[in-house]
Design a protein around this nucleic acid. Structure first.
Lengths: 196, 196
DNA sequence: TGTAAAAAATACTAAGCAGTATCTTTATGA
DNA sequence: TCATAAAGATACTGCTTAGTATTTTTTACA
């Protein structure tokens, strides 16, 4: 990798972590420069402004990351009810990057940016719809394979799964840790079982 | 009401609306002064600093508001599964103050403030636990009255209800309006029905 | 009505912010 | 190797921010 590409990438990665922890608006460019050891000249060589960097983070860091953790498991042909539960379990309890106190990066950005910035809205909307579509597809496949009852509405279930995940990440910020996640996961399991 | 109490209250109310729309950190004191027509001297007469105002908003505006919309319906002795569904329906579709593009005030504050400000964390934690406790109580009563299956875990269901509500408010920010809320509500209804 | 405190107005400070202008260094290819 | 552009460094600007200091007005009540 060329050196300039490397600095661009470290900016994106470190800024992503800072934004995940502190929020987008309260993460200043000077914060990013301080933690990356990059100078302002270099920063503004690579990005026209802060928002352009933010959008690059979504498309070049957040999107690929989400594809690995939120979408690729859904490609499996196993029972989607099990696949979905295992994915949630992994995201909440095992994923080493995601921390209860900081919630979910995508959900945080939606909360913070979406009402005011249409570019962020569009980028995050695309991301979300991708997850939604794959969840629906996986449930529909599950209906064909007999894992899921035929009368189940895949989009409705998808909305319940997505919303409860983002909600529990929010709730988990309050009294951190597993006293929130574990009973949630138990209920998610029995909800998913009820769809068989 | 004394005039000074009135200015204090308008500060709290208008600031609450601004924060609901723009977020806490990005709502400046000058913003608040501009919309309330109050001067800085008056503001700092009533509040030691911005955070003290924020905490006053939680305890004096947000808490009473939530008690009306999120808790008092749960006092009913009717079928809690119906009561809960109707409450959600009202919150998402009929409540005149809450707008899809701005999400839920409490959830927004949790997302934004909780990882960094322990005072906000405590205040919002109390608020949330109050809602949680009343939901649990109402479901337990429903178990006694035969509205809810005895093997249902009230706390688990409560976490599913709360998290999915906050999550759908987040999701609803993306493609505003009812194409998200309506199918969510349908699924919520069938989930709640499955608890009978 | 006079006076003391409550309430509010005004002007300011110091720090932080995104972004710019200008300069220096490093890489690249003829 | 040398000219040219890419990449990065430094110093600055103009603006916004939370909060303070000081003064003025309003209120309450003896």
């Amino acid at each position: 990798m060329k050196k300039s590409e490397a600095t661009r990438l470290t900016i994106l990665q470190k800024a992503f972590e800072l934004i995940y922890v502190k929020g987008y608006q309260t993460t200043s460019i000077d914060d990013i420069l301080a933690t990356t050891q990059v100078t302002k000249g270099a920063f503004y060589y690579h990005f026209k402004n802060k928002d352009e960097m933010g959008l690059a983070i979504i498309s070049e860091i957040l999107k690929p990351t989400m594809e690995i953790a939120f979408i690729s498991p859904l490609q499996s042909l196993e029972n989607p009810l099990v696949v979905i539960y295992d994915m949630m379990h992994h995201l909440l309890l095992e994923n080493p990057f995601l921390k209860p106190e900081f919630g979910c990066p995508a959900s945080n950005l939606i909360q913070e940016m979406t009402p005011w910035n249409t570019d962020f809205n569009n980028a995050l909307n695309e991301l979300t719809h991708q997850w939604e579509e794959h969840l629906i597809e996986s449930l529909e496949r599950g209906k064909q394979s007999g894992f899921v009852r035929k009368d189940v509405n895949a989009r409705q279930v998808t909305l319940m799964v997505m919303s409860s995940y983002w909600g529990i990440r929010n709730l988990g910020k309050l009294d951190l840790g597993n006293d929130t996640y574990l009973p949630y996961l138990k209920e998610l399991k029995s909800y998913l079982n009820s769809l068989h």
